[in-house]
Design a protein around this nucleic acid. Sequence first.
RNA 1: GUUCCCAUCGUCUAGCGGUUAGGACGCGGCCCUCUCAAGGCUGAAACAGGGGUUCAAUUCCCCUUGGGAGCACCA
Length: 542
Amino acid sequence: MQRQRAGRRQRGPAQGDGRFRWQREIETGARAQRHRQPQGTAVIFRRPATPPHRRGAAVCQFRCPALSAAIMAEITKPVLRFAPSPTGMLHIGGARTALFNWLYARHTGGTFLLRIEDTDRERSTPEAVDAILNGMRWMGLDWDGDAIFQFARAGRHREVAEKLLAENKAYKCYATPEELTEMREAQKAAKQQPRYDGRWRDRTPGPAEDGKPYVIRLRAPQSGQTIVQDVVMGDVTFDNSTLDDMILLRSDGTPTYMLAVVVDDADMGITHVIRGADHLNNAARQLQLIDAMGAAIPVYGHLPLINGPDGAKLSKRHGALAVEAYRDMGYLPETMRNYLLRLGWSHGDDEIIPTVQAIAWFNFEAIGKSAARMDYKKLDNLNGHYIRQTADDVLAAELVTFLGLLTPPQTLSGMAQERLRAAMPSLKERARTLLELNQSAEFLYTDGPRTLDEAAAKLLTPEGRAILAAALPLLDATDWSGPALEAAARSHAEANGLKLGQVAQPLRAALTGKASSPPLFEMLALLGRAESLNRLRAYAGS
RNA sequence: GUUCCCAUCGUCUAGCGGUUAGGACGCGGCCCUCUCAAGGCUGAAACAGGGGUUCAAUUCCCCUUGGGAGCACCA
C-alpha cells in the first residue's frame, strides 16, 4: 500500500469557468504578486456540514493543457527558507534542517532564502547571528540573496493583524496575563489541555476597556478539522476544537512568532516549509491563519528531531551541539553534509553520498519519520573516508587553516608544511579527523631527537636499543631511499635471525617517538639521512 | 494531564503482503602487513507486545507499551 503522503490536493474550482482561482491569477499576473507557486498542499477545513464527496477533491494541476511551458517553468520553481532564531549557535538539528532545504532548492533549481527570526528582542544577539551565518558558510550552505531580518518587518506584520481585525477575522482580547494564568491553572487542575477559552471572542469592549491594553487574537474556526498535509508525516488531522484563538499581536503592538512566520512566508513567496517536527503542532494553527489571510498554502515537511546518543533530547550535556564544535574537532564540511543527510534520509543502501550526488538524488519521499540519534563512531568513519578522498595539497592546506583557527592558534614552519605535504599520502590514510591528522604528523614538524611516548619507550628497552645500534651502520652505508633502506633492513634482520618488525619497531620509536606511524622507510627517506641518523643515534646503544 | 508524531540488529537504515529480513557504523575472527591504519573475506546481532484483516503479515487496521514534540503576550 502507498504510504500516506501528502497528495497534491487542491480546493475545487471556486467559480463556474472550470478553472482554479490560481490559474486565472497566473494569466492575469495577479498571482505572481501574491505568490510564486501553486498551492502544493492544502488545508481542508472540514465543516461538519460539508458532504464527504466535496472534501478536498484531488486534482493534478500539472496536467492542465491550458498552461504554457513558460508558465509551468515559473510556477514550478520552489522557494525554500531556513529560519533560525538568533538566540544561540547553529545547532546540529538546525544545520540538518538548513541542509534539507538547501538540497531541495539546489535539486530543483529553486531558491533558498535565509530569514533570521529576531523578533524576540530579549534573547536575540548579534553574536548569535554571526554564529549562524558562519555555521552556514562553513557547512557550505549558501543562501540566495541577503539574509532577511524579521524584526525589520514588524510594521508589515502589524498591518496584517489590523486588516484581519477590520475584517472581523480577528478580535481584541483584554484579558490580563494574570487572568490567563489563572484560567490555565484551573484547566490544568481539571486535567484539561490549557487553552484560551475565548472569553473576548464575542464580547464588545465597553467603556471600562477604554485605554486598556489588549492583544489581537485570531478568530479561529471552532468546529471541523484542520489537516496538515505533510510530505514527511502524511496527513495530520487536528480537531479545531483543540486549537484556541492564538495571539497575533501582543499588547505592546509587536507581532508574535505565529503571525510573523505566516506573513513572511507568504510575502517571500515561500512554497515549501521544511522545518523541525517540533513545529508540526504549530502548522495547524498557521494554516488557520493562512486561511484567514487568504494566502497560499505552502508544502509542509516536518523533519523528525535528532536525539543524543542515549536517545534523549540533544542537549548541552552531550556537548557538540553547535556545528562550530564539529569544525573544531576536525570534521570536514563534506562529512557533515553526508552524515546529516543520512540521518533521516536514505537512498537504498548508499552510504557515501557526496554533495553533488545528494543534490541530484534528494527528495522528500525518502525522508524517514522517526527520530534519529547521533552516532559519533559512524561520523568518524565517514570523516576518515572524506579525508582520504581529499587531494594531498588541499588537505595539507586545510590542516594549516584548521590549526590557525584553534585556540591558541598553531602555526607550521615552512619546513613543517613541506614535510606535511610530502607525507600526506601516507598520513591521511591513518586519520579520521584533522586533529588526528595533526597528531600523527607532529614528528615531522621539528628537527632533533624525539621525546618518547609510553608505547615508544617500551620498544626502546636495552635490547631494542642494541638492535637499533647494530642497524645504524648498515643504514648509514645505504643509498638513502625508501626501498634501499627497507632492503638493507630486511637483509640485516634476516642475517641476525630477526623478523623485520623486530628491527623496524625500535627504529620507528626513535624516529617518531611513537609506536605507530606511517611506513618507516618512507619516513626515513622523507626526513633525510642527517636528520634521521641524528634522531636514531640519540637512542642507539645503552 | 491533554493534543499530535514515532516504533526493523547496540546505532543509522533498506524493505512498501510471499525475502535465507539486505547494507553501513561499531564489535569478533581470518587474510594482507615493518607499526597503526586502509583494504578484502567472514561471524554474532533486529521486525516492542497483543488482537484483527488476509491463503499469507515486518509490511494494512486497532489496542497496549515505550519514546518524542506541542500546549506562553518564546521562537
